[in-house]
Design a protein around this nucleic acid. Sequence first.
DNA 1: GACGGTAGTAAGATTATCTTACCAAGCGTC
DNA 2: GACGCTTGGTAAGATAATCTTACTACCGTC
Lengths: 120, 120
Amino acid sequence: MTDQDSVTRTQIAERLKEARKLAGLSQGHVARMLGLHRPSVSEIEAGNRRVSADELAKLAALYDVNVAWLLREVPDSVDAEDPRLELAARELSKLKPEDLQRLLNLLAVMRNDKDEGSGG
Amino acid sequence: MTDQDSVTRTQIAERLKEARKLAGLSQGHVARMLGLHRPSVSEIEAGNRRVSADELAKLAALYDVNVAWLLREVPDSVDAEDPRLELAARELSKLKPEDLQRLLNLLAVMRNDKDEGSGG
DNA sequence: GACGGTAGTAAGATTATCTTACCAAGCGTC
DNA sequence: GACGCTTGGTAAGATAATCTTACTACCGTC
């Protein structure tokens, strides 16, 4: 519940509201289909309520939009600029070159996984 | 908190844990970078705690994976098979053909929006 | 003005999360 | 085997969130 968190939450809320209207649905419709109450949807779109990951997935399917679009891809996040780089560098420095390469390969596979579509 | 919801929550939790290990991070690392406590991360990965949308975005950036991958794209969702079709049909039947076309165009624009990348 | 549909908000009850603490397993060292 | 260290899982009370119901206002229609 920091101030920066609420910023992201507001961003998502805006997209959620925008997507719902574009889908031609009322808050009541959405609430009914997600098993929520109308006020909950209202406050979600107002940025006063969190949206859980599974709710987000349901909403994306309901509005027929990409989940990444709802999240605005949020590249500027986590904490500062790239705090993961600090930890990553510290951890990677302990790895052997071959292990590092294997790890990078695994990450590449994961990123390409979405292109495979439904498979398992 | 229905039973079907917990299924999806478990799916996301598995991906989250898998992605974290692939990223070579400990629960402690993740907790610190997200401003959480270690037990919270532990129970998130156990499927006992929800993951908010903004947390999901942060985790995806932290693990350098696609958000859709974490959510397994979850196409089989909402409630039954395609409950939105029922409501959509009911709503669309009230629209004029031109308004329907405009709505479809807007949806198409939204889906293509992600290709624009970071712009501002 | 009355009616139906939509959306925003308030307050108490309910539920989830947080926070601290404890426990167990794995690993290297002695 | 004992010790220290790190990691991961879980428990219980305190805290903060969400839920649920009810009320209100706006808009178009009659």
